[in-house]
Nucleic acid binder design. Structure first.
Lengths: 219, 219
DNA sequence: CCAGTTGCGGAGCGATTTACTCCGGTATAA
DNA sequence: TTATACCGGAGTAAATCGCTCCGCAACTGG
């Protein structure tokens, strides 16, 4: 009848490692399989049993929500770091690079399939506000093509956030070629970033895109 | 006992229309669902019965092989047109644009899952030879960044050949936003092409990628 | 060493989805 | 009208899905 004394969980460290592995694995599997990503594939890639996944997240949707929240938080932080940089171009290009490397783009396929929480909405607003500041500052410094809008930047990030080469080599298990693929990917990103700089090449066609393109997909 | 006179097939025109619709639908579904694309989804998007699909192609693999062959043929032809252009930059950039618009990138997920025919190998060789010529000519004219290799170009095409925004809006059936998405996509492509031009921005990092990255994936 | 507790992996479950077959019906040329 | 070539999609066995459950291993306090 006595209250048992509080005890430190025996295997808590392993649990935390597993959680991180699950989140990273989920990003990778989502990048490869898109909307058809399965919990079995995620658990397998994390080197973790299915049971452990379902102890931490009650459903597949809950896992994806957590993934989205973390991604948005990371994006907001990256934008803050970008604004902290002295050089406007450095700030913007580091923001873009950070978003790409974190695997922001893996989340595209879950848009519309999960319920958007208030947390997610607030983080998205913050990140977007900071991105606008980054773009404005770069425009004023004259280092960014004047026609480029924040939505252009977001779409460019989304476009570069998945790497067909890297994803497919991962899927085929050809780990030996991965370093070369990662290097090649960095070159592609550099090319795209160079295309954003002021003074180079053809003007951008069409009207500036509205952010409806970006928000509407999450319903 | 007389030989029956040759007759024109009653519904042959419809059959041809269906074939074209199937191929286009396959490209779209592959772009959205990747390796998990199903025959049912392809037939439905084409507005055609499953039976009609299987009358034309004995298996799913046969359909994908035909798709790959057509895509390679298109790529070789686009490179030829590029070489025919007078301006070296115009020739290269039209080749890139043509490859992207044809949906070259939809095929990435089928790499390694289908048997490569001799036809496909020959077409790939031709296309690659012409791409090398395009790149060399652009280098000699001094309009292309000197570090850029043909493999860089191929990887850039692959990177741009799928559009996260467009694909997802299609999947969600939001046809109303598609024109805006298509315009926005063109801006992204222009940005990337501008990044290829000589004289702008940072140098490309790392070693030039080997074409092992590109060939190995088809086993 | 022994209990006691906590988290582990994965076999198994019912429901769904898969590639593909088969056949009754329909559009078209003669 | 009749013959023919092609159509759509219900149906089939097999595979796969998200998720539950439980026997077992790893760790802590005595």
């Amino acid at each position: 009848m006595s209250t048992p004394p509080p005890r430190r969980a025996p295997r808590q460290a392993e649990a935390e490692r597993n959680d991180r592995a699950l989140l990273q694995a989920a990003r990778e599997v989502l990048a490869i399989d898109g909307a058809h990503a399965t919990v079995a594939a995620i658990a397998a890639r994390a080197g973790v049993g299915i049971g452990s996944l379902y102890r931490r997240y009650r459903t597949k949707e809950e896992l994806f929500q957590q993934l989205s929240t973390l991604s948005l938080r990371h994006s907001a932080e990256a934008a803050e770091r970008g604004l902290a940089a002295e050089d406007p171009w450095e700030g913007l290009s580091r923001y873009v690079t950070a978003c790409i490397e974190f695997g922001q783009g893996s989340l595209a396929p879950v848009a519309g399939t999960i319920e958007v929480t208030d947390d997610m909405r607030a983080l998205a607003r913050t990140a977007n506000k900071r991105l606008m500041a980054l773009v404005t500052r770069a425009h004023q410094a004259g280092v960014l093509r004047p026609e480029v809008t924040p939505v252009d930047i977001s779409l460019l990030i989304e476009q570069l956030a998945r790497s067909p080469v890297v994803d497919q080599l991962r899927q085929q298990g050809r780990e030996g070629l991965m370093p070369a693929a990662t290097e090649a990917r960095k070159r592609i990103i550099t090319i795209a970033l160079n295309g954003l700089r002021a003074g180079n090449g053809d003007p951008l066609p069409g009207e500036p895109p509205t952010d409806q393109l970006f928000t509407e997909r999450w319903r």
